[in-house]
Design a protein around this nucleic acid. Structure first.
Lengths: 348, 348
DNA sequence: GCATGAATTGTTAGCGCTCACAATGACCTC
DNA sequence: GAGGTCATTGTGAGCGCTAACAATTCATGC
């Protein structure tokens, strides 16, 4: 059954046991058609007997294919990046690829460069960079790397192929929802300056207001964290009674902070101020009150990114692979209406 | 500068350009001491000139070291697993290892077995399994694999080396805190039956009550999700006024659901019922009210897991590597006291 | 019964690297 | 100046596998 752990068995060992040449073993493993059934069975039995496993390094050396992809990400404990990471790995595994991840605390030219070097040392055939900051994508564009790179969440523009959820559309859904509910205007708490997604969401908000003939009010800025939302919420609370009845917050975590600040200021949600978030993190449904938000299809993002990357790696024309404009979806809950549906019965 | 992409340059190409043997190039790359400075400079220049990168497969083939570790995990979009994953990758990278992750939707014998096969095909030298379900660890114990495996969050017992936060201690901190605040007894909403951490937290809760001479009340069970917490919270609300004044919830997400259910039932927190969670997810501080909870040091978990795994891989005696009993920390917020500290000024 | 081609199997030559060892030359020591 | 040591560099083998080609076997058809 098992065998001495001193040295794992090689193809030649298996071949000897099965009474064939090592090449026949290779053919069996490679599902080559021209192997007699009886021979194949004998080889498979020998493989089983010795607990043989093909040496991936030797294989990679001669085929020049490591079947490994790299992912560079940051903020991987946040719901969005974590979901993207998960979707990427799942999609890559479905294609038979292994995924090596590098999670960075900060995305700078230096850390990105080190990450790509590290992945390159590991022999990845291509990399997906979850690089939602503009500066990160620009850094990426400058860096030399011996493999194709695809970005997620960066928007087009710097010439690196990318896959995106349509943030602009999502913001329009959110803002339009509030206008349709009768609010005269909608305020906005934006994400960090440098983030493409924050810019796109702000642009969608602004465009929707302008189309409705409304002058966009001053917009605030946070850093995605609940704390920054809390601080902004304190400021927003001061505008209640002076035209502020609805806020579109650029992500759910900040919306959580806003809700707390409003509550502490004695402002009721949604009666006094309606709030919409973005992301639909699992907790949103249980906020006080449950949060209306915009859901993104991370699974689609993962699949398309991997498809695009593999096109690039295998020299196929990526034109046929769809990428932009993965459509987000509005999820309406109690933070915008006196809405009390039983949780769990909420739309999925 | 760059060179024709037809075939990447090899060590021999670099050697030719530098006028040395391939072995000298290898020595330069390997930081071997006995190379003349002038020679080293010449080689480095040639490397730069050709854009040479060492072929990891060839290197791995001869050294029998891929310098890649595997991680198997599930629920990677949850805060705990995501944090652990991040910490593992960071710790492994610090040791010069690449990390390949497999994220599973469900941990069963089949999926685990496939995951280990997949990682094995990829040539990992060892695997960390984030396997908090008992059934998963048992499955793992049965599976054959040609590399060492370390588990995280599983508790000892099945003979697989493991690293853990002291969940029992964390539960004692939480329960003790409530008793010290004057509550006569503490109810418990436990995590899923099969989870070791859920069992440990329940045991810590029970032991603390028993030591205080209190008969533990009926305990409820959820599945970690906010929804299950909400349902349990509805049930708990029915016991208010009949001895229920404090609840220790086994994680923050369920606590969020409990808070919502209590609020909807007209029960005030903390005045009527105090609530403590577990995990300290970033959102907890902004719940309504901000949640008292137990924080775990995932970074320590990551470092120790990797240290232990590397001990195993390199045949060192792992006895010297500390592993159990990473101590958790109580974070007190408004859900257990009328406590209104400014967020951000909270302990970090 | 033997040529003919297809199916099956074996042989050989690397893939690009590191290791072990050999060779070279500079510098001492007595 | 012979012999020894050390630093530096080169040579050859081989890691385990796949690709290309060569060799063998086997079933046909006439």
């Amino acid at each position: 059954m098992a065998q001495s752990q001193l040295r794992p068995p090689t193809m030649a060992d298996v071949a000897r046991l099965a009474g064939v040449s090592h090449q026949t073993v290779s053919r069996v493993l490679g599902d080559h058609p021209n192997v007699r059934d009886e021979t194949r069975a004998r080889v498979l039995h020998a493989i089983e007997e010795m607990g043989y496993r093909r040496n991936s390094s030797a294989r990679a050396l001669v085929t020049r294919r490591t079947r490994t992809l790299g992912v560079v990400a940051s903020d991987t404990t946040l719901y969005g990046p974590a979901s993207t990471l998960f979707a990427l790995e799942e999609a890559a595994r479905a294609e038979g690829y292994l995924v090596s991840t590098v999670s960075l605390r900060k995305l700078t030219v230096e850390t990105l460069s080190e990450a790509l070097d590290h992945l390159s040392e590991g022999g990845v055939e291509g990399v997906v960079a979850i690089a939602p900051q503009r500066s990160a994508v620009e850094a990426l564009a400058e860096l030399r790397h011996p493999f194709p790179v695809v970005t997620v969440g960066s928007g087009p523009g710097v010439g690196i192929p990318c896959v995106n959820v349509d943030q602009y559309m999502g913001a329009r859904l959110a803002t339009g929802h509030l206008l349709a509910a009768g609010h005269r205007t909608v305020w906005h708490l934006a994400g960090p300056e440098d983030w493409q997604e924050a810019a796109d969401r702000a642009a969608g908000w602004r465009a929707t207001l302008e189309e409705a003939g409304v002058e966009p009010p001053m917009s605030l800025r946070g850093d995605w964290s609940p704390l920054s939302g809390y601080r902004a919420g304190q400021e927003l609370a001061g505008w209640v009674g002076r035209g502020l009845t609805a806020v579109f917050v650029a992500n759910d975590q900040m919306a959580l902070g806003v809700l707390r600040a409003l509550r502490e200021a004695g402002v009721r949600t949604p009666q006094d101020v309606a709030v919409v978030g973005f992301d639909d993190i699992p907790e949103s449904e249980f906020f006080a009150p449950p949060l209306t938000t915009v859901r993104q299809d991370f699974s689609a993002v993962g699949k398309r990114s991997i498809a695009l990357l593999l096109d690039l790696i295998e020299g196929r024309d990526p034109a046929g692979t769809p990428r932009f404009a993965i459509e987000p979806q509005l999820v309406v809950r109690a933070s915008t209406f006196p809405y009390t549906a039983d949780p769990g019965a909420a739309p999925t």
